[in-house]
């Protein structure tokens, strides 16, 4: 009797254990929640662009459709010959400047459909806060255009939106004049992304460690060494990376312009 009960319990537990193990043995993916952002009136374009970039690639789930190009137009790269979104946004709708257009098409996507794509994009105001929307606008402007979003924009829609939280101190006098968003750092990162440096090298949360990581590389190597290592990767192989020696293409000298090379070198040398 007891034995019988024990057997039953063991069969049940074994079955449950098997299923739990199987479900734990496969890749574990958690669905992300868009982070809530809150900016003051003195927010800088860089802050907005970087927050927008994270949203675009991550929790905003924009790349589910934009970038694949069969569900929605590409935004980061050229679409329809008019360049990336930052270049073409101002010309999309008569009488709307880039900023207005981008915000409006996030808030009311069906009214700004791009042929031949279907109406599948949800109203992003549902999913994202005003601050997040404006950071996306800033990020998209940054794709080939000039960032004109300021703290004042954030305040304006916040005040008008129904459930808007209390306005965040300050007032209209938003500044953030900086219009040259592509600092050396972002440009260097862009160049490195385009040349797939992060396929082997790690910097911050980008990339993988196959070759030496870039974090803090400026404190270990000087600019001359870095320059030489890019142009002539196999000249000197650092300790611990002998196994991957010869992996890095030796033709970056031909692939990079001198300006790009210098940008990368100076950027890396500044990583301390």
């Amino acid at each position: 009797m007891l034995l019988q009960n024990l057997k039953i319990v063991l069969v049940v537990l074994g079955t449950l254990g098997l299923y739990t193990w199987v479900a734990n043995a496969i890749p574990q993916v958690e669905s992300e929640v868009p982070a809530q952002l809150s900016f003051g009136a003195d927010v800088t374009p860089e802050e907005l662009v970087s927050a927008g970039g994270q949203l675009f690639a991550g929790a905003g789930a924009c790349v589910t459709c934009h970038g694949l190009e069969d569900r929605a137009p590409a935004l980061l790269s050229d679409y329809g010959g008019a360049g990336p979104i930052g270049q073409r946004c101002a010309d999309r709708v008569e009488g709307m400047d880039c900023k207005e257009y981008l915000y409006a098409s996030l808030a009311d996507p069906y009214s700004y459909l791009v042929e031949p794509f279907g109406p599948i994009m949800p109203d992003q105001r549902i999913n994202l806060s005003e601050d997040q929307l404006w950071s996306l606008v800033a990020y998209l402007q940054d794709q080939g255009g000039e960032v004109t979003v300021t703290g004042a924009d954030l305040q304006s829609t916040q005040a008008s939106s129904a459930g808007g939280a209390a306005s965040q101190g300050g007032g209209g006098a938003a500044t953030a004049a900086a219009s040259g968003p592509s600092s050396d750092a972002t440009e260097a990162t862009a160049v490195m992304q385009a040349n797939l440096c992060f396929g082997c090298h790690k910097l911050g949360d980008q990339g993988v460690v196959l070759g030496p990581p870039f974090d803090g590389i400026g404190s270990r190597r000087d600019a001359a060494y870095l320059r030489n290592s890019i142009l002539n990767p196999n000249a000197e192989v650092p300790e611990g990376y002998q196994e991957v020696a010869g992996l890095m293409p030796p033709n970056f000298g031909q692939m990079l312009t001198a300006g790009q090379l210098e940008t990368i070198v100076q950027f890396l040398a500044s990583q301390r």
């Binding site: 496969i26 050229d78 010959g81």
Partner: peptide, 19 residues
Amino acid sequence: SFRSIHPAPPRSITFQGET
């Protein structure tokens, strides 16, 4: 390493500015 499902190709792409 785990890899997720194979990608389905898009119906159209933008190639150097042209659809």
